[in-house]
Design a binder for these strands. Structure first.
Length: 818
RNA sequence: GCCGGAAUGGCGGAAUUGGUAGACGCGCACGACUCAAAAUCGUGUAUCGCAAGAUGUGAGAGUUCGAUUCUCUCUUCCGGCACCA
C-alpha cells in the first residue's frame, strides 16, 4: 500500500528546496536576456496588524498560477512582491502606544510575509521592496525633485525641465531679469509640476490631518466624517504641496484607449477626469466696468439667459445686473449654492428653459423662463393636446428637439438673432460663441492632487527654505531621512510633528510629509532593479523589462493608485526615464471573497477565516486550488470551508492515481491532450475555475481506465503544477525526475489527438430533443439524415407527416421540422 | 438622477460566432466496507408526475427551425459618480 498524501510532510520540504535552488530567482540582462520577458505584478499590500484573511490571497494565487505557467513556457518572468508601508493606520497605532511606527510596521510585514510564504507563491523575494526603506524612498524623493524641476509645455503637451522655461523668459520677457529671486521663484511656482499653494481642504481636527475626498464618508446626518474613525471633517484653508496632474488630464484620458483594462475601471477614470467641452463667455455688469466670466457647455442657448448665478450659501438676489452680450438684455445676478467655486469659471449663466437645475432655480425664485430653441409652434400645439397620448407624443418630439436630435432645432425663434436660425447644435455653439467674443475651452472635473500630509509617518519632502525662497535638495543629499520625534501626535494646529523637531526646522526643511500614495506610484519600476543605488533602476534594465504585462489587484484603487501611477509614469516617460507611455498594459481585478454569511470578512462581524488555519488543515495546494475553483476570478463570491474538502479529495485522488501507471490507454491519452489545450487557454484568460474542473474530469477518467501511461501522468502533473506546486513536485521526483517540475517545459497538446472519431449529437423534432445519434464528425448531411430518420423514437413521432425542413449543423445538432 | 455590472438547482458555479441547460465541486439520500464510527468506494440528486410526459436559466414581449446566449420593455441586487454648468 502506497503512502497516503500528507501535505505537512511535503510542503515545507519543497519550499526549502525552491529557495535553496533559487528556482524562482529572476535574472536581469545579460543573463536573462535570451528569453522573452514577462512581468506579472500583484498590487503590493499595506500590511495591517490584522494579517491576511482568505480573501486576500485570491489575486496572488491567480497571478502566481499565470507566472508559473509562463515560466514553464520559457519566459523570463518577473514576479515580485513588496510592501506599501507608510500610512495612517501604523501612525494612529503609534500615537496610542508610543511605539515607533517602523517597529509596528515591520511586525506587520513579518506576519504578512509568513502568511504569503506558506501558500507557496513563486515570488523572487530577493527583489522585495519596502516603501519605508531610505534606500527606496530616496528615489521617491528623487522623482518629487524631478516634478519640482519640471513644467508642462502646453504646445508639445509634455513635461520639460524648468530651466527651458527660464531660458524662454530670459529671451522673451525683458522684465524677467529685473525681477528679484523671490519674484522669479513665485512666478515659476505657477508652472512647476510640484508646487506650493493654498487650498481649502478637508480638515479633520481629531486626526489632525487633511483628508482626500475618498477618505471621507457621510456621517449619516449628511455631515462629512473621516472614513477612519468617523471623526468630523471641516473645510480649512491651508498651505499645501500640489502635483499638477491636471496638465496630464487629456493624456490620462486618451491613454485609456491603448490599454487592456476592465471597462468599468476605465469608465471610473473617465468619469473622475470629467472632461467637458464648452465656451467661456464674458458678461458685463450694468454698473461699472467689471465683468463676469461664465463657463457653459451650451453656448447655443445664450439668447435664453434670464439670470447669472455665482456661488453662495443660500439663494439670494445680489441686487446687481449683468448684460447678456448676445442681445444686450439686463439679467439679475443671483447667489446660488449649486454653483461651485472650483469648477469652470465659478459662475453660471442661467438658462431655465434648457437646463434642469436652472429651471428648478428659476421656478423657486420666480425668474423668467425664456425658450430660445424650441419653436413656439410645438409648445402651443402640445398645450392644445386633446388627450394624454397626444401630449406624450409632443413631449417626445420636444425632448428630441431640446437634445438637438431634430433638424427642427433653431428654425423658430431666437430673439434678435435670425442669423442663427436653422443651424444645427454644433454650428450654433461655434457661431454664437464667436458672435459674443467668447472662446471654446475644455474643462476637467479633476483637481490637482494635494501632495502633503501634516503627519509624521511619510516620506519627507526634500525641500528647504533658504531665506525667503524654497530650494530643492541636491541629489547627493538624498535620501532625506525621517528624523525621530518625541511624539507622533500632530500638533492639532495643522502642523506636522516634524515642526516640533528643532534641528529639522532650523535647517529649513519642509515639515509636511508625502501622502500614502507617493511610494506606491512607482514601486513596480523598482522591482526591476531593487538594489541600484545610482538610479531608481538601471537604464538597460528598464529598457529590458519595459512595463507590466499583467497587473492584478482589487478594483478599489480605480481612482487613486491606478491614476497616480499612470500620471507619474507619463511624467517619467516625458523625461526619457521609462520607454512606455503606460505602466500597466493589462489589468485584472480579483473579486472579493465574502464570508459565508454574505458580508465582508471583518473582525467586526467575527466572520474572518484565516488562511494559515486552512493551510494547516488542508494544505497549501488544496487551499490554492479551492481559491481558484471557487468561481470566476473577477467575480464576488462567498467562502465555504466545506468546499475545500472537495479540492483536498481531488488531490488525494491524483496522489493515488500514480499507482495506476502502466499500459497506455487511448481515451486517457486523448483527454490529457485536450486538457493541456484547455488549461493553457484558460490560464491565459484568467479562467482558473474551469481549469480546475477540467482537471477533475481528467482524474475521473483516469480512475475509470484500467491504467494509463507514465507519460500521460507526467504531463498531467505539469499542468497541475501551477495550481498545486508542492504535491506535483513531490510526485514528479518520486517518478524519477531530479530537477524541479517548475523548471520543466510546459507540455504541448498533440493536435492529432484532439479530434474524436465518433461524436454524439442530439436529434430534435420541432426544437425538442427526442433522441441521440452517434456519427463521425465528418459525416455527410445525407448520412446523418438517413440515420436520424431511421431512429425508432423519431419515426414514431413523425409517423406519416411530411418533413418540412431538415437542419443539420455539422457536429452540433439535428433538427427536424414537421 | 446618471454611468457600469449582475440575476441559472439546497449552495459555489458550467455552458459564446445562437445548437442536448445544470459540467465540475459541495451538500443531501441510499448502498458497500466496518463490531461501530471516520475515511474511502458505488448509485442517485432541477421541478411536477407512479409513469408516459410536461415545465424550467429574474418578469414580459420579439427575432429564429432552435434563445441562458441576440433585440425591446420592466423588476431586483451590487459597484461607481453625484448640484461639474
Amino acid at each position: 500500500m502506497a503512502k497516503p498524501y500528507d501535505h505537512k510532510e511535503i510542503e515545507g520540504k519543497w519550499q526549502k528546496f525552491w529557495e535553496e535552488k533559487g528556482v524562482y530567482k529572476t535574472e536581469n540582462p545579460p543573463i536573462g536576456e535570451g528569453k522573452p520577458k514577462y512581468y506579472v505584478l500583484d498590487m503590493f499590500p499595506y500590511p495591517s496588524g490584522a494579517g491576511l484573511h482568505v480573501g486576500h490571497p485570491r489575486g496572488y494565487i491567480g497571478s502566481d498560477v499565470l507566472s508559473r505557467m509562463r515560466r514553464m513556457q520559457g519566459f523570463n518572468v518577473l514576479h515580485p512582491m513588496g510592501f506599501d508601508a507608510f500610512g495612517l493606520p501604523a501612525e494612529q497605532y503609534a500615537i496610542q502606544t508610543g511605539e515607533h511606527p517602523s517597529v509596528i510596521t515591520e511586525k506587520a510585514i513579518d506576519t504578512y510575509k509568513k502568511q504569503l510564504e506558506i501558500i507557496g507563491l513563486s515570488y523572487d523575494w530577493s527583489r522585495e521592496v519596502r516603501t519605508i526603506d531610505p534606500g527606496y524612498y530616496k528615489w521617491t524623493q528623487w522623482i518629487f525633485l524631478k516634478l519640482f524641476d519640471s513644467y508642462f509645455d502646453e504646445v508639445d503637451k509634455k513635461a520639460k525641465s524648468i530651466s527651458e522655461l527660464v531660458a524662454k523668459f530670459e529671451k522673451e520677457d525683458p522684465a524677467w531679469s529685473a525681477k528679484s529671486e523671490k519674484e522669479k521663484e513665485d512666478l515659476l511656482m505657477n508652472y512647476r509640476l510640484a508646487y506650493e499653494g493654498y487650498s481649502e481642504v478637508n480638515w479633520c481636527p481629531e486626526l489632525g490631518t487633511v483628508l482626500a475626498n475618498d477618505e471621507i464618508v457621510d456621517g449619516g446626518d449628511g455631515k462629512p466624517v473621516s472614513e477612519r474613525g468617523g471623526f468630523p471633517v471641516e473645510k480649512k484653508n491651508m498651505r499645501q504641496w500640489f502635483l499638477r496632474i491636471t496638465s496630464y488630464a487629456d493624456r490620462l484620458l486618451s491613454g485609456l484607449e491603448s490599454i487592456d483594462w476592465p471597462e468599468h475601471i476605465k469608465e471610473i477614470q473617465r468619469n473622475w477626469i470629467g472632461r467637458s467641452e464648452g465656451a467661456e463667455i464674458e458678461f458685463g455688469l450694468k454698473d461699472g466696468d467689471e465683468k463676469i466670466k461664465v463657463f457653459t457647455t451650451r453656448p447655443d442657448t445664450l439668447f435664453g439667459v434670464t439670470f447669472v448665478a455665482v456661488p453662495g450659501e443660500k439663494e439670494r438676489f445680489t441686487g446687481k445686473y449683468a448684460i447678456n452680450p448676445a442681445n444686450g438684455e439686463q439679467v439679475p445676478i443671483w447667489e446660488a449654492p449649486y454653483v461651485m467655486e472650483g469648477y469652470g469659471t465659478g459662475a453660471v449663466m442661467g438658462v431655465p428653459a434648457h437646463d434642469e437645475r436652472d429651471f428648478e432655480f428659476a421656478k423657486r425664485n420666480g425668474l423668467y423662463i425664456k425658450n430660445v430653441i424650441l419653436p413656439n409652434y410645438y409648445i402651443s400645439k402640445r398645450n392644445e393636446s386633446k388627450n394624454d397620448l397626444e401630449k406624450e407624443g409632443f413631449d417626445l418630439l420636444i425632448n428630441k428637439i431640446i437634445n438637438g436630435d431634430s433638424p427642427y432645432a433653431y428654425e423658430g425663434i431666437l430673439s434678435n438673432s435670425d442669423q442663427f436660425s436653422g443651424l444645427n447644435s454644433e454650428e450654433a455653439k461655434q457661431k454664437i460663441t464667436e458672435f459674443v467674443g467668447g472662446k471654446m475651452v475644455t474643462k476637467y472635473k479633476m483637481r490637482d492632487a494635494i501632495f502633503a500630509r501634516q503627519r509624521y509617518w511619510g516620506e519627507p519632502i526634500p525641500l528647504k527654505r533658504v531665506g525667503d525662497v524654497i530650494k530643492p535638495l541636491s541629489e547627493n543629499e538624498l535620501p532625506l531621512e525621517l528624523p525621530n520625534v518625541s511624539s507622533y501626535k500632530p500638533a492639532g494646529n495643522g502642523e506636522s510633528p516634524l515642526a516640533g523637531v528643532s534641528e529639522w526646522v532650523e535647517k529649513g526643511f519642509e515639515t509636511n510629509t508625502m501622502p500614502g500614495w507617493a511610494g506606491s506610484s512607482w514601486y513596480f519600476l523598482r522591482y526591476m532593479d531593487p538594489k541600484n543605488s545610482e538610479a531608481f533602476a538601471g537604464k538597460d534594465t528598464v529598457k529590458y523589462w519595459q512595463d507590466v504585462d499583467v497587473y492584478v489587484g482589487g478594483a478599489e484603487h480605480a481612482t487613486g493608485h491606478l491614476l497616480y501611477s499612470r500620471f507619474w509614469h507619463k511624467f517619467l516617460h516625458d523625461l526619457g526615464y521609462v520607454p512606455t507611455e503606460e505602466p500597466f498594459k493589462l489589468l485584472k481585478n480579483q473579486g472579493l471573497i465574502l464570508a459565508s454569511d454574505g458580508r465582508k470578512m471583518s473582525k467586526r462581524w467575527g466572520n474572518v477565516v484565516n488562511p494559515d488555519e486552512m493551510v494547516d488543515r488542508f494544505g497549501a495546494d488544496s487551499f490554492r486550488l479551492y481559491e481558484m475553483f471557487i468561481g470566476p476570478f473577477d467575480q464576488y463570491t462567498s467562502w465555504n470551508t466545506d468546499g475545500l474538502v472537495g479540492t483536498r479529495r481531488f488531490l488525494e485522488r491524483v496522489w493515488r492515481a500514480k499507482e495506476r501507471i502502466g499500459e497506455p490507454n487511448q481515451e486517457v491519452d486523448i483527454l490529457v491532450n485536450k486538457t493541456i489545450k484547455k488549461i493553457t487557454e484558460d490560464i491565459e484568460n484568467f479562467r482558473f475555475n474551469t481549469s480546475v474542473s477540467s482537471m477533475m474530469i481528467l482524474v475521473n477518467k483516469m480512475e475509470e481506465a484500467p491504467s494509463f501511461s507514465k507519460e500521460n501522468y507526467l504531463s498531467f502533473l505539469q499542468i497541475l503544477a501551477p495550481f498545486a506546486p508542492h504535491m506535483t513536485e513531490e510526485l514528479w521526483h518520486k517518478l524519477g525526475e531530479t530537477s524541479s517540475i517548475h523548471k520543466s517545459n510546459w507540455p504541448k497538446a498533440d493536435d492529432s489527438k484532439l479530434k474524436d472519431e465518433k461524436i454524439k449529437i442530439a436529434v430534435q423534432v420541432n426544437g425538442k430533443v427526442r433522441d441521440e445519434i452517434e456519427i463521425s464528425p465528418d459525416a455527410s448531411e445525407e448520412d446523418v439524415k438517413e440515420l436520424a430518420l431511421s431512429k425508432n423514437n423519431i419515426s414514431e413521432i413523425i409517423k406519416d407527416q411530411s418533413v418540412k425542413n431538415f437542419i443539420y449543423v455539422k457536429g452540433k445538432i439535428v433538427n427536424i421540422v414537421i
